[in-house]
Amino acid sequence: MDFLFNPWPWYVSGFLIACTLLVLLLLGKRFGMSSNLRTLCTICGAGKKTSFFNFNWKEESWNLVVVLGAIIGGFVGAHYLSDGSIPDISEATKASLEQLHISQENGYLPLELFDIQSLSDFKVICILLVGGLLIGFGTRYAGGCTSGHAISGLSNLQLPSLIAVIGFFIGGLIMVHIIYPFIF
């Protein structure tokens, strides 16, 4: 059972992600996570004012079932298949954490941002909220996220998805290398 409990190697994980795509396609569905955010907006009533959200959300409800599963999967992974310790990142990355005031003795996510007690820090709340805003706005603008573009779109050899993925990296590199020193 050790192979289940230890972090999975990249080639196992990558293969299984491709299998997720395959199974969803064989079920006559798509592999895309961010469109669920649009569906949830519609369920909250956003369609009354904005036409973008005015669609029959029931046709997309299958994807919410996948999301519900993903939430359960996260629970199972965290509680039964791991000890929640910090990933085995490279020494160079570990060393650089100090400049960000993020401890090397940490959990699966940095507790400085994702511990419940961190919510008493207004700055942390702003970081999380702005991060979410950028993710929600950006994925809908680009028409997909990592699953919809980087996996599904590129697997279908779509040039638009390649442009989007280049955008993902432009944004990510700007954030980590230019903006991080001003935030952390």
């Binding site: 669920n36 996260g74 979410g132 028409g143 996220c145 998805s161 944004g171 980590v176």
Partner: peptide, 26 residues
Amino acid sequence: RYIIGGTIFGLGWALVGACPGPIFVM
């Protein structure tokens, strides 16, 4: 739309370290 939207998403992805799937998983 792909380059601008993608860049905006990338900023958020790197800031909180989660894309939409992992938001739910976490």
